[in-house]
């Protein structure tokens, strides 16, 4: 609603410009000659500016310090697990990596499934709210989707195990009976519906609002002139979205996806409560033996862990950290490559 007003605001200002140009704001502040010509004025402003920029930089550095502290904690607590005799770990594997391998696989597999399900739906909803639904209804709809974000993960867990799993189990029966030849649906089917697909569905529902909300705000900021220009050229609404909205919003949408992925990768309670875990590498979506995720494994085993097992669990946390790091680097790389085409400043 408010964002919609801003779009109007931006459009009004935007109508004065001759062509969209990447005008770096640095130029204005950095030009020493300019500041010298109005030396008296800028001299009076400088301390406040410095204090303000210093504060913002301080906040940024504080984040780095906090993260460094977390990283140091993780590494220090993980070291004993890397150095220990792997036979002392759960399931007495031959090496630490054998212990962590299925968990890494499960984490990425579950998060990928969740993201694959959530992304199209989230973008669809964001477009629906920003460009299809009547404005008045759109506000209400946006609020309804935000409501999903308000549901705590424990409740999703309760819902997953109590409502979704029993509801979806007959579908799994059907899938395995009719499509059992397909590797993803190899039998035998789970008797409780607590499979990785169920978990991924719950995760998808959980990350939906955060992806939708960010995408929606970004889509709403599309310059009105771009949209109107596209429509004026005879584009249908979908073509207008293809030409004007999606390219403008792409970095924001990728950013939103990363936020969602971060939550899906690190989600603890839902995985622990809903999944029927096993130590396997398996792509099967409907069986009883599902690869566990790192976060789920920590939640399941931390309470009873003692000695080096605790360090091993924290070490898996460190690995999750590294996974996120890698995924985010890839995303950043993609965004930066596309930046030139986007309409954002």
């Amino acid at each position: 609603m408010l964002a919609a007003r801003q779009t109007g605001f931006g459009a009004v200002i935007g109508s004065n410009r001759t062509r969209p140009q990447r005008f770096s704001n640095r130029r204005i502040t950095e030009k020493p000659s300019m500041t010298k010509t109005v030396a008296r004025v800028s001299a009076r402003q400088r301390p406040a500016d410095r204090i303000f920029s210093g504060t913002t930089m301080g906040a940024g550095i504080l984040i780095l310090v906090a993260l460094a502290a977390v990283a140091i904690f993780l590494v220090a607590e993980s070291l004993p697990a890397f150095l220990a005799n792997p036979k002392e770990l759960k399931g007495s594997p031959s090496s630490f990596w054998e212990y962590v391998g299925p968990l890494v696989f499960g984490t990425i597999w579950a998060a990928a499934l969740a993201l694959a399900m959530a992304m199209p739906v989230a973008i669809g909803i964001a477009l629906f709210i920003s460009h299809y639904a009547p404005r008045r209804i759109a506000q209400v709809l946006g609020y309804i989707i935000d409501l999903l974000a308000a549901v705590p993960s424990v409740v999703f867990g309760l819902w997953g195990i109590g409502v979704l799993a029993p509801f979806i189990r007959p579908f799994y029966d059907g899938l395995v009976q009719n499509f059992g030849w397909f590797p993803l649906f190899t039998g035998p089917v789970s008797g409780t519906g607590k499979t990785i697909l169920t978990v991924a569905i719950v995760l998808a529902v959980m990350i939906l609002p955060i992806i939708t909300a960010v995408s929606r705000e970004v889509f709403l900021q599309t310059p009105r002139l771009h949209e109107e220009a596209a429509l004026a050229l005879g584009a249908t609404r979908w073509e207008m979205i293809q030409i004007a909205v999606l390219p403008f919003g792409r970095p924001g949408v990728i950013s939103a996806a990363m936020l969602g992925l971060g939550r899906a990768l690190g989600e603890t309670m839902v995985v622990a409560m809903v999944l029927s875990p096993a130590v396997v590498y398996s792509f099967v979506l409907t069986g009883s033996a599902n690869p566990l995720t790192i976060a789920g494994n920590i939640a399941l085993n931390f309470p009873e862990a003692s000695g080096v097992a605790v360090n091993a669990l924290i070490a898996t946390g460190l690995i999750l950290f590294v996974i996120t790091l890698v995924i985010n680097s890839v995303a950043r790389y993609v965004i930066n490559r596309r930046k030139a085409f986007s309409g954002a400043n």
Partner: peptide, 12 residues
Amino acid sequence: DTFPYAGGEGAQ
């Protein structure tokens, strides 16, 4: 404390 076999379903 850990269930030793691979079969069956786990629950928290």
